[in-house]
Amino acid sequence: MENRGDEVQQKSARRQQAQGGGRLEWIDVARGVGIIAVVAGHVWTKGPFRDALYSFHMPLFFLLSGMLSRPQPPERFALRQLLSQMRPYAAFLALLIVADQIIEPMKGQRPIFNQWPEDLLPILLGGSWLRGPYTIFWFVPCLMVSRILFNALLSRWSDPLDRRWLITIIPAIVCAYAVGEMTKASLLGLLTVPMAFVLLWVGAAWQLVQWKQWMWLPLGGIGLAGLSGLLPTLNMKAADYGLPIFSLASAVATSVLIFRISVHLAPYGGWLAAVGRASLVIMYLHVAVIHYLSPHLDEPWLLLNALLLPTGIYYLLRATPAARRLFL
């Protein structure tokens, strides 16, 4: 079994290298496409365009994370995830809370959190208790916990195509749909963990599938069913996964095709890759930009600012050692 696991890891690593080359630029390009879809989905908040973006944009990030997963010692991985993910989470959340305390009074409005110390509780609960410029903060804790759980099993069953994975994947799918029907309350975004876990596994398993040209047709048809609105769209934060299995399959199909297109765009997609490298900072900050600028800008300019301002902040943070350690 260990030899089989080593073979799986070597095959996956070779395939990724062949697809993107170098720094695996296609991954950054795919992240760039995904984060643009996320931002646009928060700029255009209703209508067919918004529904098309919601049909795949958050699953794309979980799938990509699954594709990049490699088994690591569980305890060490969990500790590293907690330190490396929750530190920027807390730093960006504190930064935006302070900014809101300054900006809203300047506009003649009350800050979102204006009753202290009572407001400390919803801030600590996170997830569905955070709204306005903080609404996206569910994503990172959800991804972190999902990755910790997924790695704990991957370190035991290193081949995602091993049939033993069905022992956990089938109950996780059932749990994902069941809890989404029972409640929308989501502590730190953890309501979405069962479905995120499933998507991590799908991404890891798909990485081992040999791509064939004929796959464009069926995947394109399934993806188009979600993009066109034929299938109900997704809202992962609220654990609303549309039509069971089918909406999720459409999200996977669209994301996989974006990955394939990203491979071909990688040699020419420098700006997309630059946006992709800044995707986590954009994820944290773009809703705040939209929140404060939406009364003053039309949607296309709002989209541009919600992408460019956080991207610029990312590269400034990266160039400053103290800020890089805290926020990145």
Results as ranks from 00 to 15, higher is better:
Leu190Gly: 04
Gln9Pro: 07
Leu96Met: 13
Arg110Gln: 11
Arg131Tyr: 10
Asp6Leu: 15
Leu187Ile: 10
Phe56His: 02
Leu199Gln: 10
Ala204Lys: 15
Tyr292Thr: 01
Pro111Thr: 04
Leu24Met: 14
Gly180Gln: 06
Pro74Glu: 02
Ser262Glu: 07
Leu125Ser: 09
His286Ala: 02
Leu82Trp: 13
Leu154Lys: 11
Gln101Gly: 00
Ser255Val: 05
Ile35Lys: 07
Ser255Met: 07
Asp162Gln: 06
Ala273Glu: 03
Gln210Gly: 12
Leu187Phe: 14
Lys107Ala: 06
Met215Arg: 13
Pro105Val: 07
Leu309Glu: 04
Leu317Ala: 01
Trp201Asn: 03
Ala249Thr: 06
Trp301Gly: 02
Leu161Lys: 13
Thr168Ala: 15
Val256Cys: 11
Leu224Thr: 09
Arg87Asp: 07
Ala205Tyr: 02
Ala204Val: 08
Ala91Leu: 04
Glu104Pro: 00
Pro244Met: 08
Lys107Trp: 00
Val179Gln: 13
Ala91Cys: 05
Gln115Tyr: 08
Leu328Glu: 07
Pro122Lys: 04
Ala152Asn: 10
Gly189Gln: 02
Ala196Phe: 10
Ala239Cys: 03
Leu64Arg: 08
Pro71Trp: 04
Val202Gln: 02
Arg4Tyr: 13
Leu188Phe: 12
Leu79Gly: 14
Leu64Glu: 01
Trp138Gly: 01
Lys237Arg: 12
Gly226Leu: 07
Ile167Ala: 15
Ser12Thr: 15
Leu79Gln: 14
Pro267Lys: 06
Pro194Cys: 03
Asp51Ser: 13
Asp240Ser: 10
Leu234Asp: 02
Trp129Phe: 10
Arg4Trp: 11
Ile282Thr: 03
Met86Cys: 13
Trp201Asp: 03
Val29Pro: 02
Leu248Asn: 06
Leu309Ile: 13
Leu326Thr: 08
Arg14Asn: 12
Gly41Trp: 04
Phe150Pro: 03
Glu181Arg: 10
Gln85Ala: 15
Gly22His: 11
Leu79Ala: 12
Leu234Ile: 06
Pro171Trp: 10
Arg324Phe: 00
